[in-house]
Amino acid sequence: MSAEITAIEQVVATLEHAQHNELVDEFVGLFHKDAIWTTAHGKFLNGRDEIAEFTAQVLPGATKIGLATYEVAHVRFLRPDVAAVKVRQRPVNRDLEVLEDQNEGSPLYIMTKEDGRWLLSAGQNTIVLKD
Rank of each mutant, 00 (worst) to 15 (best):
N21H: 10
A40P: 07
A3R: 13
H41T: 14
L45A: 00
S106P: 05
F54Y: 06
R90N: 04
L96N: 12
L119C: 15
H17P: 02
I127R: 00
T39D: 05
G105L: 14
T38W: 03
D115N: 12
E22Q: 11
K113C: 15
G123I: 02
T126G: 00
E50R: 06
N125V: 07
R48K: 15
A52L: 14
R88S: 09
A84T: 04
D49S: 15
K130Q: 14
E71K: 10
Y70V: 07
Q10E: 15
V87P: 00
E100T: 12
T63G: 01
V24I: 15
Q10T: 05
D101G: 15
T14I: 07
G29M: 13
V92L: 13
T14K: 05
E53M: 09
E100D: 15
G29S: 10
T38M: 09
P107W: 09
K86V: 14
K64I: 01
M111L: 11
V98R: 03
H20Y: 15
E53A: 10
V82P: 01
K64M: 09
V12L: 09
D95H: 06
D101L: 13
I8H: 00
E97W: 14
G29L: 05
L45V: 09
S106M: 06
H32F: 06
I127C: 03
A40L: 02
A73K: 13
A62M: 12
L120S: 03
Q124C: 10
Q124K: 12
Q10N: 08
K86T: 11
T69E: 01
D34K: 14
A73C: 11
E53W: 09
L30D: 00
R88L: 15
V72L: 14
H32R: 08
G123P: 01
K43F: 04
E114F: 07
H20E: 11
I5K: 11
D95M: 01
L15H: 02
G66S: 04
D131M: 10
G42S: 10
E71C: 00
G61V: 08
T14E: 12
A13N: 13
F77D: 00
F27Y: 07
P80C: 03
A73T: 09
L120V: 08
L67H: 04
W37A: 04
N46Q: 11
T55E: 02
T38L: 11
S2Y: 11
H17L: 10
T55L: 06
A52C: 10
E22K: 02
G29H: 03
G116M: 14
V128K: 05
Q19A: 01
A122H: 14
D95L: 04
L59H: 10
V12S: 03
A13M: 11
V92H: 04
D131N: 11
V75S: 05
T55H: 04
K33G: 05
E16A: 02
K43G: 02
